[in-house]
Structure formats: structure tokens, C-alpha cells
Amino acid sequence: MSKDNKIDQELVRQLAVILNETDLTEIEVEQGDLHIRVARNITMSVAAPVAQPAMAAPAMQAAPTAVAEAPQAAESKGHVVKSPMVGTAYLAPEPGADEFVKVGDTVTAGQTILIVEAMKHMNQISADRAGKVTEIFVESGQPVEYGEPLLTLE
């Protein structure tokens, strides 16, 4: 292998770090004749779809429909608080504890309304304005996507 054809291991490491930090599944870089693709297999971390692929496919197809319908219903009733990141939503600070908010609760701007765990970090999600919680779209332990509606404030 000539010197020009050596793989830049530091670049591959940097891409892997970016991949993990951004919670992406793959990243590609092209510079001249050099083309590097770094990807990770996310199906290994989700046991149910691997064990029962026939059941996982319909569930995965139904989820985007439910997410797509939720903002339309929520926007007509009030202010929708959306997830600022990809992760797992938790409605309480720890298992067995009271939830941060329930439907009917009044919240103040800056008040913690739930937690989104991303890459082993618990990120407190705060209300961006005061209001009354009219709907909660997620359940504790549910995966959420960036921009997915979490709850509605009136």
C-alpha cells in the first residue's frame, strides 16, 4: 500500500466521535479520491426487533403516522413543546417517583417538564413558557426524535 493510499486513522476516529455525539447511525466524508464511511449497527441495542422482526416492522411503520398526527391536533389546542434531541423520554426523575407534570398541571417558564436521556446523559427539558398542560404525547421510557411533540401547553 502506498503512502497516499493509507487510511487516516485519526480522521476515522474523529468521525466516530461525531457519530456518537450526534447520535447518527452513519457519516460519510469525501475528499478528492478519499471516501470514508463510518456506520454503526443500531439494531443490536434494540432487542425486540431483532428477536421478532415480523412484529417490529408494522410497529415501526405505524410510529411515524402517530407522530405526524400529533402535532396537527396539538397545534390547534395550544403551544406544543417539542423534543430538542433524539433520546429516551422519562416523565419522572427516577423510577417510582412522581412525574414532573401531569395533564391539568400549571407550569412556569423554565420548569422541568421531563427528561430526555441521550448517550447516557439525563437532559432536563424545561417549559419554554408558562401554561397549563393539556396533553402529554409521550410515555416514560419511550424513544423520541428531534422535533417530536412532547406535550401541549395552553
Rank of each mutant, 00 (worst) to 15 (best):
G32R: 02
V133C: 02
A73P: 11
R13N: 13
V81H: 05
P143N: 02
M44V: 05
S83G: 07
E94Q: 13
A127Y: 07
H35Y: 14
V67I: 13
E94K: 15
L24V: 01
I136N: 03
I136C: 07
A16V: 12
D4T: 15
Q142P: 03
T152Q: 02
E30I: 14
E148F: 07
T112P: 08
Y90M: 08
S2E: 15
A130E: 05
L150R: 08
A66L: 09
D23K: 06
K102I: 00
V50H: 04
E21C: 02
K3A: 15
E148D: 05
V38T: 08
V133M: 02
D105K: 03
T134V: 03
E69M: 12
A130T: 03
E154C: 01
V116F: 10
A74Y: 11
K3P: 06
S126C: 10
E30A: 12
A57Y: 04
D23R: 12
D23Q: 09
S83W: 04
L11C: 01
E69I: 11
T108D: 04
A73C: 03
T43K: 07
E148N: 00
K3I: 09
D105E: 02
D8E: 11
K120W: 06
H79E: 08
Q9D: 08
Q61I: 11
N123K: 14
P95E: 06
Q142M: 07
A39F: 14
R13I: 15
G141Q: 05
V86R: 15
E94P: 15
P58M: 03
G147L: 00
P149V: 05
E30W: 04
Q9S: 09
E28K: 05
P95G: 09
M122K: 13
N123Q: 07
H79K: 08
H121P: 03
G87H: 03
L150Q: 05
R40G: 10
A97Q: 13
V107T: 01
S126N: 14
A59W: 08
Q142G: 02
P93T: 07
V133H: 04
M55D: 04
E148K: 09
Q124E: 15
Y90R: 07
N20M: 02
E28S: 12
M1F: 14
M119R: 13
D8F: 11
